[in-house]
Design a protein around this nucleic acid. Sequence first.
DNA 1: GGAACTATTTCAAACGTTTGCGAAAGGAGT
DNA 2: ACTCCTTTCGCAAACGTTTGAAATAGTTCC
Lengths: 341, 341
Amino acid sequence: MRGHQVTIKDIAKILHISPSTVSRALKDHPDINPQTKKNVQDLAKKLNYKPNQIALNLLQQESKLIGVIIPEIIHYFFSTVISGIEKIANESGYHIIITQSNESYHKEVENIQALLSSNIDGFIITMAKTTLNFDHFKNVEEIGVPMVFVDRSCDAVTADKVLVDDFDGAYKATKHLIENGCKNIIHLAGPQNLDIGIQRKEGFLSALNNSNIPINSYSVQICDTHDHALKLIPELLSRHNNIDGIFAVNDLTAIGAMKAVKSMNKKVPDDIAISGFTNSHISYIADPELTTVDQKGFEMGQHAARMILKRIHSDENYGPVTTILNTDLIIRKSSLKRKLN
Amino acid sequence: MRGHQVTIKDIAKILHISPSTVSRALKDHPDINPQTKKNVQDLAKKLNYKPNQIALNLLQQESKLIGVIIPEIIHYFFSTVISGIEKIANESGYHIIITQSNESYHKEVENIQALLSSNIDGFIITMAKTTLNFDHFKNVEEIGVPMVFVDRSCDAVTADKVLVDDFDGAYKATKHLIENGCKNIIHLAGPQNLDIGIQRKEGFLSALNNSNIPINSYSVQICDTHDHALKLIPELLSRHNNIDGIFAVNDLTAIGAMKAVKSMNKKVPDDIAISGFTNSHISYIADPELTTVDQKGFEMGQHAARMILKRIHSDENYGPVTTILNTDLIIRKSSLKRKLN
DNA sequence: GGAACTATTTCAAACGTTTGCGAAAGGAGT
DNA sequence: ACTCCTTTCGCAAACGTTTGAAATAGTTCC
């Protein structure tokens, strides 16, 4: 049913000239007779000729395609990363193929294989949480297809990375809570096998230390989902009545905590101030609006795209580059206690 | 820097046989000597041979690529649609190229052109809100590349569609509010140049009529963003004190309305019950949790992918197919008034 | 009138793969 | 010794495009 796209050969046949002449005429090659040029260009426009990208790809040994592997597209952060990648890629005539790992190691391996056989020119990857074996990345490295890791770094392989300064972000958020009068802050932390989980925790602890605030046995809780926070916080508050601040590893968890706090008839922020991390849409939607750390997803995506394009177009094999972006603290109502002093 | 991928020709050269023999050996063609076959297959495995997808695409005049054009990936609904598409496409060896129009007509046209020259095998499209001219779609139709429209239908062009029963969803949500004791419900409606805006409004009005509830001059307000609702609702409530229910065209608007209601010291749901539409993540996050209509994004994506694959693989030119999915009413706390009778 | 040059066009190979057809070689049957 | 068949393989074309090199025709110059 496909109506045959018009090709250079078609134009050549109609005009009784050779395909090479048509090709050159279309690119304004000086060797071509102006009249022939005009004939060709007019006909091409009339027939709505579009060069066949696949043929060009084959000839030039490139696909102008960047493979993107992320855990889950429905997460606000990742969708902003994708938007950033898409913007820069499109500006250079590239397109992106998106695949999701759903945080599954096996799906990630599958996706790598599938994208490789699609002859993509480069990878932009955020590893799955469950990825502990890195042979599939090493394989890519051997083949020589460039990779950029985003947000979660993989040290088993030499590749470019773009990360965010999680430590500093967490530090700033915690410091802000302290400055707003919090004296007993807990941290709802992410899994400690991931760099971001560790860094955000360390930033939190460092801020406490720096302000000479004592760290309790319950100051750090592994808890990184909305529903978990909803269950955990009431328990915690009933045991430790003097908790007056919560710094959560992500916005969703922060909002779960917020709901739990409100359900116990405590006020946010006056009784308990809260900060999240990511600056996803929901932080603005929350009631009260959630203070959070902007994770710069869009910028990360843009950087990653620029890095991969540079690799693709570079002949020399320069060493791996790591870019670390600064975070911004976004201050909203959930952390602004009435000043008591 | 790219380490030349190993090709059939490489294998042929090493084994001193012709490329055609290698090709056939790799596919277990009966014409090939078992020993030759084994030699080829062993070497191919050893060298990690992967067929060049681009060459195959050129030969078979297909790219195994589906072009997806959506307004904005950061919207929960669209990201679920994408997930659905990706799942089905991958199962059939297809990949998806995603582009965003950002609700801009011009970007949409650009994306169509770019994807066409990437020789994608089919389009899955959700039109931008601002698209009023359809020549770019007609162009695609002429060329003969199949299209499926998702969520927002385009009648100017003969193509498959997968829609959701917006009318019925709105009807069910409104009916539910009525059954929970609402006597004066307003509808925050979407733009009335889009089908979904019209259908949801009509469903709302029909439910009121069916329950003999009078429709006021202010019953329908064009308002489809969080921030607009935040401004509009206080005005409305101060003028019409007896409003006791709100049905919003999407979840974000519903949550804006919810915040506004709470800010006026009215209780949700007891004073004013609220329902949204979409069932996005935020509806579960809201406080109180938001009653809403599940828009079945994932299912829509799956259907769209199946429809486009069927088109791609079909030789005959069957008439356009429209699939309309049923919605589910998701009842949560925001609509459950204490029964007064 | 031949060399030298210019202007314009075509040829052919290349990218990697598939596939119809033909070729070569050997064996069996008559 | 001839045909016929089988087994195994290679040739060449095809997909659409680009590009160096060669070809053709026409002009200029001495």
